[in-house]
Design a protein around this nucleic acid. Sequence first.
DNA 1: TTCACGCGTGAGAGCGCTCTCACAGTGGAT
DNA 2: ATCCACTGTGAGAGCGCTCTCACGCGTGAA
Lengths: 350, 350
Amino acid sequence: MAQPSGRTGRTSTTLEEVAHLAGVSRATVSRVVNGSPRVSPDIRVDVQAAIEQLAYVPNRAARSLVTRRSDSIAVVITEPSGRLFSDPFFPRLLRGISSELAARERQLVLLMPDSPADESRTAEYLTAGHVDGALLVSLHADDPLPGRLAAAGIPVVLVGRPPKGTKASYVDVDNRQGAQSAVAHLLAGGRRVVATIAGPKDMAAGTDRVAGYRDALTEAGITLDPSLEAPSDFTQQGGAAAMARLLAARPDIDAVFAASDLMAAGALSTLASAGRRVPQDVAVVGFDDSPVATSTTPQLTSVRQPIEAMGHEVARLLVDAVEAADPVPRRVILATDLVRRASSAGRPSP
Amino acid sequence: MAQPSGRTGRTSTTLEEVAHLAGVSRATVSRVVNGSPRVSPDIRVDVQAAIEQLAYVPNRAARSLVTRRSDSIAVVITEPSGRLFSDPFFPRLLRGISSELAARERQLVLLMPDSPADESRTAEYLTAGHVDGALLVSLHADDPLPGRLAAAGIPVVLVGRPPKGTKASYVDVDNRQGAQSAVAHLLAGGRRVVATIAGPKDMAAGTDRVAGYRDALTEAGITLDPSLEAPSDFTQQGGAAAMARLLAARPDIDAVFAASDLMAAGALSTLASAGRRVPQDVAVVGFDDSPVATSTTPQLTSVRQPIEAMGHEVARLLVDAVEAADPVPRRVILATDLVRRASSAGRPSP
DNA sequence: TTCACGCGTGAGAGCGCTCTCACAGTGGAT
DNA sequence: ATCCACTGTGAGAGCGCTCTCACGCGTGAA
């Protein structure tokens, strides 16, 4: 930055030039560009013609300088790289966010801090007012970021319900309902001893899915049994190990609801080693409907999450919050969808 | 945009205020901020103290307005969503890019056009001068974007060698050498009838990996045999089908090099159905070292690509190109690394 | 002592835009 | 005819910064 660029910049057209060509003042061109109603139709047409002819594009920097808005939104992904690299969640979410922001003419500024030093730099960047708001993607339970941003008055929307209660807006899928429908589906298929491989207890997605599992059993009048609930960590290895524990404790299991497809895939391999046939002996349902679900044998029934829709929703919420004078926190919960595949085919009625 | 925001902005400190506190002029503070050597040490200290005290952060918009640089770099991902959602390539690449750009104090503006209309909007955005340069991630063979950007004088760096020859800078992994080392490893393990499941012919990664496969055989004095080369499409299903074709044509195959882990995983399932043991009867090597490689049975030997390094390199190249007066195209080829796992364990010597 | 030179510093213009305010023109009510 | 309200337009200030240019001061050579 010490050196000015040697590049002889492509100088773009300015408002001034458009105004000159159209025979009006800068102010009028500005009004046309920004869609003000206070412009007579004929002048508007002239100005638009001039804009077209000169291929005029407003200079964001100049505009930002006076409006004190950057029209950019930060997306902060703080993920220690495990899930980031194995789960298609992030690309899909980014696509949803990107498409919404593009439609709203906002820039998407991506931040992926990958060290504690980086994270504090991220916080400084965000609070410096370079962006109008921030989308926080995978928050640690103890992340100080939401607090710092709130203190700095930066609008924030979270993706996924944060583990601790928070005042911030967030968008999440209906994990509980999704899990409930998965287990209800197993019960409807004639299964009676339904276990679950759960996610970590310190993640909302973990606890909510267990709650949904219990809901379904309770609704069906089945007494809950702690020996049928094996906590795990959302990974394939973890799922395999949890399945082994479940089989050891309860050999009579005839169905498993895993809180992620990766864990379900792990469970499948353990079941295969144990000589249990899927779905004849044990039915399996996963969660996420990730690509893994169609590459296992048999293919996995799974709870599909509307990830792109989440992206859209979260971006919409944030842009609205930036524009609104009253940033009332909102939460949006999106419904899930059970995708039926071979792993949970119902038993032939006896 | 018609309405000014109702938000009562957190007004940040300005150069002016820092200058006042330090008892110097704006120009001097600016010099300190931008690291000019033409400032006496004692004054520099005073100014830095004032900056610290007021928590001064330069206003990007004001700076951009005069420097005519945005200090932001666009990353354009044009991927029809197949690979985007199944391959961890993109998150890893983004992380590499992000970390390099953060270190260089550049903003990463992410663009993911997902419709033709979107793509033309993207082109307009990029040529409007809102960013200093663009990183193009997964280019179609016939994508007009590089041409349009070149015409507009926007610096561009490509990730991966483009199918058609191009004058643009790019960074790629050494696909040919990677494939060569994989096949050499199979030969060193005592394999003699080595087949390959290749990628599409219209992708550089596809043809380069076949070339590497042939290199290794030729070096070992083995005559090439077209019946051992099965083109496919980088997907698991495609890999499974290609493996079936290979087995039908050449039942004597004792090793397979697949140009992607997904295809290798498909090959494994076909081999299992055909009753061939891996690695005893047939050794298998994949490419990418993706998470799939460790979730198959047996785990896959695979060629690891330095994806984060690619991200770093590509970002470095672009920032350098933006700063340099003479944008001489450069190409950087990164070495790969063979990760040995069970799927290619050598035969016990006879 | 005088002059030239270089170095550190300040004054001020200006980047392209928005937005307030003033003003001219129009038309309806008095 | 007079006044008022209202609408459309233009003039101009100013957002926060960089950068050129001029200036004053100290230093070394003449």
